[in-house]
């Protein structure tokens, strides 16, 4: 067998194991107080390494990958593991350097700290 046919007949699975998974938008709760915006997203199956949060041009992008390996052929399957992806446009005045992300029990919590210009300010009324 010459090299060309050998390459052509190689089983494709051996070349590079590729896991093909769909992507869904995870359910998200959004809360706000005077100091920050709080995003809570359900991303079961995603681990710390699989989560990518970016703020660019006013768009917050959440990308979470399921990292657990799939076992071969399930006896019964009601769901397919999927990756998660969602984008939000965020108001100007969110400090990109102060975004805090926490993952616990498959729930991602993002804290977006407001800069001073977005914080509510109380105006003192002076007696004239």
């Amino acid at each position: 067998m010459n090299n060309a046919t050998h390459l052509a007949k190689r089983p494709s699975a051996a070349v590079e194991p590729v896991q093909h998974r769909d992507t869904v938008a995870p359910p998200v709760d959004v809360y706000e107080n005077g100091e920050e915006l709080l995003l809570v997203a359900d991303v079961p199956g995603a681990s710390h390494e699989g989560i990518d949060v970016q703020l660019e041009k006013g768009m917050l992008t959440i990308h979470a990958r399921r990292t657990e390996e799939t076992s071969a052929s399930p006896l019964a399957a009601e769901y397919r593991p999927r990756h998660y992806f969602r984008t939000f446009s965020v108001p100007q005045g969110i400090d990109a350097t102060k975004i805090d992300a926490q993952l616990s029990a498959g729930v991602l919590r993002l804290r977006l700290a407001k800069s001073d210009s977005l914080k509510p300010r109380r105006v003192e009324v002076k007696q004239g």
Partner: peptide, 22 residues
């Protein structure tokens, strides 16, 4: 939750997504 059931030969493995549950 939706459940997947796998046969591991000598055992059965059941997986379910339960976000937010400890």
């Amino acid at each position: 939750p939706q459940v997947n059931l796998y046969d591991g030969g000598s055992n059965l493995v059941l997986k379910a997504d339960v976000p937010g549950l400890s």
